[in-house]
């Protein structure tokens, strides 16, 4: 099977107030194309650090991280930016929409960092807005939307550049139960459409949707469960 990501002996140290924190102490993991992985664990266990490394927002201290055929662990800032622009879609806990842009413009943002925007891509953004159920709110500003609606926009945005990965960091952390279910259903839909999904969460009901649950403890994999 084609691998979406291959992680080998990955470590990450960072310095916090003069002390070295060893956030990841050697993670090895293979994520097949189209997988649905939930990363769980107590706070400080390194879940977000791992997600940020896979998302090319940061570089590992040591170890190997391969996305598709590319070894991203040795790439420079510009190359990592390009990988993010073309292959990765982020969904954040606090939505992180850009306040001065309306819904449609927010969905289009990732496209601007890839260079040209075709008419086709633009119409795809409208389709995405339609898919997440916001086609009647295209001109609204983020602050005019509810939390659930904002997260839908964020999901649509994460798909705009047609990425391989959707990386979601606590995507339902700020939402109530009903909305959580809607958002998870939406993510399920896109997973079924072929996206590789990696979700960081500490909620059981979120994790149950995943094919595999990885539990981290103190920067190491504690348990890897296939459901």
């Amino acid at each position: 099977m084609q691998l979406a990501a291959r992680i080998h002996e990955l470590t990450k140290d960072y310095v916090l107030k003069g002390e070295t924190v060893r956030a990841l102490r050697g993670i090895s993991l293979e994520i097949p194309d189209g997988d649905y992985v939930a990363i769980m664990g107590p706070s400080g266990s390194g879940k977000s650090t791992l997600l940020n490394l896979i998302g090319c927002l940061d570089r590992p201290t040591s170890g190997c991280l391969q996305l598709g055929d590319d070894d991203v662990s040795s790439m420079n800032d510009g190359q990592l930016s390009r990988i993010r622009a073309s292959r990765i879609g982020f969904v954040f806990q606090s939505y992180n929409l850009i306040p001065q842009l309306n819904v449609l413009e927010n969905i289009e943002v990732p496209l601007y960092y890839r260079g040209r925007i075709t008419r086709l891509e633009r119409s795809r953004c409208r389709e995405l807005a339609d898919l997440v159920g916001l086609s009647d709110r295209l001109k609204h500003r983020p602050q005019q939307l509810s939390g659930g609606q904002q997260q839908r926009v964020a999901i649509a945005r994460s798909l705009a550049n047609d990425p391989c990965f959707i990386l979601a960091d606590e995507p339902t952390g700020n939402l109530d139960t009903g909305t959580t279910k809607d958002i998870l259903d939406l993510l399920d839909d896109f997973h079924r459409a072929g996206k590789t999904m990696i979700i960081v969460t500490h909620e059981k009901e979120v994790a149950t949707r995943a094919r595999r649950i990885i539990r981290l403890r103190d920067g190491r994999i504690d348990e890897s469960l296939v459901q």
């Binding site: 998302g55 927002l57 800032d77 510009g78 930016s81 390009r82 993010r84 622009a85 073309s86 990765i88 982020f90 954040f92 992180n96 929409l97 850009i98 306040p99 943002v109 990732p110 960092y113 890839r114 945005r157 550049n161």
Partner: peptide, 14 residues
């Protein structure tokens, strides 16, 4: 916003 744009693929020069 800068963080978000960087996460969405903006380079430093962008």
């Amino acid at each position: 916003e800068i963080g978000v744009r960087r996460a969405l693929g903006a380079t430093r020069s962008d």
